[in-house]
Design a protein around this nucleic acid. Structure first.
Lengths: 250, 250
DNA sequence: TTTAATTCGATCAAATTTAATCATAATCAA
DNA sequence: TTGATTATGATTAAATTTGATCGAATTAAA
């Protein structure tokens, strides 16, 4: 029984039931659980299914990533406190990147009267800065409706053409080991913006600190300054890795 | 019972009742209250629901999706008639350019269910096609607040990287002598899109026919098809220059 | 305002699942 | 056949998930 055949069988069962358990698969296919687990890992990496604990689900059954508007309402106070502190570092004539995260979006309200240039892939940011003193450069590419953002190869190339003094970015999770993203696209975008900036600000409310996500895309060296409302003792872990930490209270 | 399954159940109940209590969820799903609490926390962090004391609520739809102001509702009937006719020529799998004019914007409503790709520099177009079958590619560059559009060198380069089967464009004025634009930027954008398209549709309500403006940027050879509600005898002037004319009535 | 009752978040322990390591079996090329 | 590469299965340590407990925080009532 080759991997191809097993994969076919797994997808068949998945189509029929919507979800499967490793134990079932093992007995139905006649291979060990270890092998099934390996198969599922491979298939999940190829986007053929969604891995759960003890089994797998059809991709279509997975709760979808939530719209930007909904996410923006979470942890509002903390996000605003973080952004107020970050905005204090922005000077007239700065050129800054703002990514498509819901945290960085809250930065807009604090920079409306600054004479700066903002380069962003976030549609809400563009909209928010519409009638302000800020000059906006919008990154082009494929429009991602769910994230209200622009991604893709063209976006990456666009970013590579520009250079900013500061970048204000978010991540899905951050630990002493590195940075975690919720999707390849977010990771790619974060890397692209960071590499074109003199100083990278990471804006993370407390829920992001110590959290990992499925995609670790870089170590902490990417970041210069961490702005957060988290104030646990393990913040020193970040400082010992060379990050400056701005601690704020909400 | 995995988290994904529980999340499904919770959202289902939330949809049905608008709000749920932890105790209900615990007994209905068959897991401890601690686990339900953890699930709700996670889901709230993802913006899937609002956390309340002792339970959760459905997210209200009050947070409005980003909406761009819709400019000049002039000659609406004529523009809609023109766009309905133009849309009839758009087939599934087409890749089309739509420019930032107020006429071309009206095209959106007629293409929402088509399986096509739209490349545009117009923010209202992006917004309008947000939740449709259409895949949108947004042109990057400097945001022009007044025109709700993207312009500049970067935009021009972006357009040059793509190719479309059809372009749907507007102008400030059109005569037998050529095409007139209201600004350098509009002219530059029109030229760029036209040069990358197999077939150029010019969408002009009657007020544009025979009108000149301060910048004549090209002769009529740029255009393949003129769609208009104008029906004067001098339309033959355009046809004699090689244009096809679609005449519509509003 | 004070008090009582819930609810929450943090911590811990048990059970399960996973990832990593290694040894064995199968496959393939020369 | 031999040697090398790959796939599989067994074993074990690490990580996740879950539920229980208890002080802290929040809500409701007096």
């Amino acid at each position: 029984m080759t991997f191809q055949k097993r994969a076919h069988k797994i997808l068949e069962l998945l189509e029929a039931f919507g979800e499967v358990e490793i134990r079932q698969l093992s007995s139905k296919i006649g291979v060990s659980e270890v092998t099934v687990r390996r198969d599922l890992t491979t298939m999940a990496a190829n986007g053929l299914l969604y891995r759960t604990h003890g089994g797998a689900m059809k991709i279509s059954e997975v709760i979808k990533p939530v719209s930007f508007a909904n996410k923006a309402a979470v942890n509002l106070k903390a996000k605003d406190a973080i952004c107020r502190r970050a905005a204090a570092d922005i000077m007239d004539n700065d050129v800054i990147f703002i990514d498509c995260g819901s945290t960085a979006f809250r930065l807009c309200q604090f920079i409306k009267n600054k004479k700066i240039k903002v380069i962003t892939n976030s549609l809400p940011v563009v909209n928010e800065l519409q009638h302000s003193a800020v000059a906006v450069n919008l990154i082009g590419g494929e429009v991602d409706t769910a994230r209200q953002a622009v991604h893709g190869t063209m976006a990456k190339e666009h970013i590579a053409r520009y250079h900013a003094s500061k970048a204000f970015l978010g991540v899905d999770g951050i630990t002493a080991e590195g940075l975690y993203a919720g999707s390849e696209q977010e990771a790619s975008n974060t890397l692209a913006m960071a590499s074109q900036s003199d100083c990278v600000y990471m804006l993370c409310d407390a829920s992001k600190i110590g959290k990992t996500s499925y995609l670790k895309f870089n170590d902490l060296s990417l970041v210069n300054i961490l702005v957060t409302n988290y104030n646990g003792t393990d913040l020193t872990n970040f400082e010992s890795k060379g990050l400056s930490v701005y601690s704020v209270t909400d």
